[in-house]
Design a protein around this nucleic acid. Sequence first.
RNA 1: GGCGACGUAGCUCAGUUGGUGAGAGCGCUCGACUCAUAAUCGAGAGGUCGGGAGUUCAAAUCUCCCCGUCGCUACCA
Length: 503
Amino acid sequence: MDRFYVTTPIYYVNDEPHIGHAFTTLNADAVARWHRMLGEDVFFLTGTDEHGLKIQRAAEENGLSPLEQADRTSVRFKEAWRSLNISNDDFIRTTEPRHHVAVQQLLQRCYDNGYIERGTYEGSYCVSCEAYYTDDELGEDRTCPIHKRPVEHMVEDNYFFKLSAFEDRLTDWLTNSPDAITPDGYRKEALGLIRQGLEDISISRTSIDWGVPVPWDDGHVFYVWYDALINYATAVGFGSDDARFEQWWPATHHMLGKDILRFHCVYWPAMLLAAGIEDLPTYHVHGFLLVSGEKMSKTSFNKISPTAMVEEFGVDGFRYALLRDHSFGPDSDFSYESMLSRYNSDLANTFGNLLQRVTTIVGKKCGGVAPAPRVDSPVADKAATAIAETIAGWAKFQAASGLDATWRLAREANELLSETEPWKLEPGPEVDAILGDALEALRIVALLGAPAMPEAMAAAWARLGLPGRPEEQRIADAAVWGQYPGGVTLPEGEPLFPRLKAT
RNA sequence: GGCGACGUAGCUCAGUUGGUGAGAGCGCUCGACUCAUAAUCGAGAGGUCGGGAGUUCAAAUCUCCCCGUCGCUACCA
């Protein structure tokens, strides 16, 4: 069976879950669900990143141990993902013992292979950034350009990773693997970063102890970034179950935002190569969600809470609107108004209303018993096109274009009804044929829409009188025109997606 | 400065390797219908595809220049 391993970044627990995190996680979830419906063996990972100075300091301020501090915030992500119905198979925390083992083994291998060396680093350090700055980067009065606070002069012994040794291999990889990073613009960007030259990077700290200890030198812990990336390997058995790791690793797909492209697409593959792991991941990079054209960041106040959106639109309404409105790749503008518009037009009007009117006509003209579709329906070809384009969209990790193609079929069904006006006809074969076709279109939309809206499409499935859930179907078998069985009595019900007014 | 991305109808965007008259959804105008969640369907208005030059029988699509917006150029999620 084909395997499919998909990850989100692990989110830093110093932050609250916001809609940017939700966007990445939701896309990964929908893709994971789609691949399960393709019949693949899927492993979907998310988690939290819990080491580093910021956590240590936050813990001190709150009178907690660092782990207690991390516990408190990690759980917020778990809760957020539960409220969004995220189907992750694992939730990794970098503070777990399994992760420490994996980090130590992977970096020990790099060390043994000669790619980690001891050195010293000295410079101006911003505590908030956990980063050093060069003099020309500092603001007035030697302040951090981000936080506008004074930097500290620090000197420390460090271990350095010989990133510079990997320029050629990384360039070859990205040149010879055109699909290594999608959309393609981000592959070019990664190549550009490499072309500008790679310098060795410091990967350990002596100034703090909240991290994974360097196995060959007690006084050091690994810098948070270089333990964090390794989580992807940990979760599929690196360091604990080699057979499992070898099964899953070649099927790795990382989904991430463009802000962390450098770490994921340059540093991480270099670390893997240094450890002797030749299979490199495939990457799917997205842009930022903007609010009124402004970048959302954790320091800005215009963050939008996913929880609030769920209360407004329902889990699946929010999931659909977010996935459908923001293609995976470019930056795009997020607004409440556009989300409301998308919900009403696609879910309440096009789909929900279609289900409602078809059900009603079946009640009036067919005694409530659903007819079967025509094999040679005029809608069949259009359905085949919509299905093919939906499959193509999801294959490219483009939920938005997949959903767009799916919804064209719902519009086709509405057009069919307007053209044939079955409510004016006497009961009989003609009415049955039209309504059977409409029901079949609804079945296919519910099937293909399930990765985006698992519960709502399951509800629609039930309203169509179908057994089980759409997610239990296999796309290759079920996404073929003509399978709606007919003969079942359709249950009545309230509108699936009530039309919403602006608040 | 260097690297990169983007700039297509009012809005959000599609437009594969250049080739039938430039598209979709939403919004708007008009009309139809009344089975349906003031939903649905049809028609229409609206674009010198940022500007200029060039290559070509032919360019939104290739080359160069310019303008505008933004990102990266950080050992920061």
